[in-house]
Structures are given as C-alpha cells and as structure tokens.
C-alpha cells in the first residue's frame, strides 16, 4: 500500500513539473502550446542515453536533458514570434506530430515503439534511487525547485514584461520591450524545465517509449493546467494530482466490468474536461471569470 501511494506521488510530481512549466508560458505569456510532450520526451530520451552511455548521475542526466530541450525549443519559439492564437496552436500541433514521427523512427536513439529498455536508476551523489519511497523525495524536491524558480521569475521584472506582453503585445513593444527576445526566453525556460520531468520519468520507470510523448500526453498536461486554473500558482498542481488520481480512483470500483474500465475512465476524463469548461472555465483554483 505504501509503495502504491509513493508511486502515485512520483507520477503526480513528474506531471506537476510539466503542468507548472506549461502554465508558465500559457498563463503568463499567452503561448498555448500543444507540443509540451515533445520536450518531456526529448528530456527523457536524452537522459536515458546519458545514463546508459555516460553515467547515471543526475548531475549529468538532468543538465543534458535540459540543454537538448532548450535547443529544440527554438523551433517552437519561431512560430510563437510570427503568429498567435489558433495559428500557434496549429503550429505547435504540427511540431508535436513531427516529433512523434521522429521519436518513432530514430531507433538508435529512441528505440522506436519498442522504446528504451533497462534504463539505470537515478544516481544521486553515488546512491541509486529506485524504490518508490526514496524516489518520491527526489521527485518532490525537483518539483519544489522548479516551482520556486518559476515563482521567482514571475515576480521579477522579466515576469512583469511577460504579463505586459500577454495583455497587449503592441503596447509592450511601444514601451521599448524586446518582445521577441522575452518570448523566446520564456519558451526556452519552459522547455528546459519540462525536460527535468522527462529525465526523472525515464529513470523512475526504467522504460520509455514514444507513447508517453504523443499529442495525447500534450493534451493531458494542457488539461491539467486548464482544469487546475491557468495562470495560478496552485492550479497546475491541483490539476496534475486530480488527473493522475482519476485512473486509480476508478480502479477501486471493483463492480465495474474489467473490459470497460479503460473506456469509462476515458469518458469521465473527457466529460470532466467539457463540463469544467462550461461551468468553471477559469479552472478549479482560478477566478470565476477572466478579464
């Protein structure tokens, strides 16, 4: 039972990192990305590669994952500078689909659908961390650090600039703000921190494959942010916890027929998304209505 709870804590913490980093660009910069799973995936593959071929120390795997994701995120920054709204959503969608194809085909790096097997456990200062209870310390600490970083950023002058851009891009530009630079930096930071979640995920599950990094995963993370409350501090965490707990909660209902549990879980997930958007579009934590 204990192991089960810690297992959930780990998954929630990892997805919460993704939600918090996506919320950073969605809630503060107004960049609605459907490609967040790309950076999650790249982080996971990169750290798995480093762990298997160089050394499984998190002092190596996590920075490598972050750098790879930061570099790739420039591709996402490109449309973010050119277009807004539905065009950007479509562009990020395009990037997501392209990335899934590459994750499936670049077999020497990703293992394709077969995935990367036997990824070594995370090595923290010489100690191998793989039991759910021990890993929970690592994942929660990582989440807290990521949140603290983002919180500090949001309350700095950089954060004020972001909000100015969110409210009115042209006004911000006329105040002499370097809008393209600020947008690019925020995308890079978000992607790099999302890769931290990828690195943790790879070492925790010891197996990764492309299915964890598809459009569905991007939508799941986006749903966490929106259901929790876009642009709030607690929202993404609440959303991540809720959506990760949902399958476990449903699996306790023993009276449901085995073969329909998967479908019912999906229906509840879909219905929840829809109803929440109708009755509480600001999310659970968010304000009732948005300006």
């Amino acid at each position: 039972m204990e192991a089960y709870i810690f297992n959930l804590v780990n998954l929630i913490a990892i997805y919460a990192i993704l939600a918090v980093t996506l919320n950073f660009i969605m809630g503060y910069a107004g960049i609605y990305s459907l490609a967040h799973a790309v950076f999650f995936g790249l982080g996971a593959y990169t750290s798995a590669w480093v762990a298997q071929n160089v050394h499984p120390s998190i002092l190596l795997t996590i920075p490598a994952a972050m750098m790879a994701a930061a570099a790739l995120s420039l591709l996402l920054a490109l449309p973010a500078l050119r277009v807004r709204g539905e065009y950007f959503v479509a562009a990020s969608l395009g990037l997501q689909v392209l990335a899934v194809t590459i994750f499936s085909e670049w077999k020497s790096f990703t293992g394709g659908i077969g995935g990367v097997l036997a990824i070594p456990p995370a090595n923290v200062f010489g100690i191998e961390v793989f039991k759910p209870a021990h890993f929970a310390i690592l994942s929660v600490v990582a989440l807290v650090i990521v949140m603290a970083l983002i919180n500090a950023l949001v309350h700095s002058s950089f954060g004020r600039n972001l909000r100015a851009i969110h409210d009115s891009e042209s006004a911000a530009a006329s105040f002499g703000k370097n809008v393209p630079m600020i947008k690019t930096i925020s995308v890079v930071i978000s992607a790099a921190l999302a890769a931290v979640a990828g690195a943790l995920y790879a070492s925790y599950l010891s197996f990764i494959n492309v299915e964890s990094f598809t459009l569905d995963a991007s939508v799941l993370v986006m749903a966490m942010v929106i259901i929790g409350g876009t642009g709030t501090v607690a929202g993404p965490i609440v959303g991540a916890a809720l959506l990760m707990l949902l399958p476990s909660l449903i699996s306790w209902f023993d009276f449901l027929p085995q073969t329909e549990i998967g479908a019912l879980q999906q229906i509840i997930y879909g219905l929840g998304m829809t109803l929440l958007m109708i009755f509480r579009p600001g999310g659970i934590v968010g304000r009732r209505a948005k300006a």
Binding site: A223, I226, Y269, L271, A289
Partner: peptide, 22 residues
Amino acid sequence: HEGSFFTVFVASFGVGIVVQNL
C-alpha cells in the same frame, strides 16, 4: 461567458474523447 478559443478547444477535445469511447 468567455470567448477564449482555447477554452472551447478543451471542451471540444473532451467531447471527442467521450464519443470515441462510447
């Protein structure tokens, strides 16, 4: 109550999941 296309998108995506599974 809110015009954001993204809110509509999320609601719509949810409906798609429900229909597929039903």
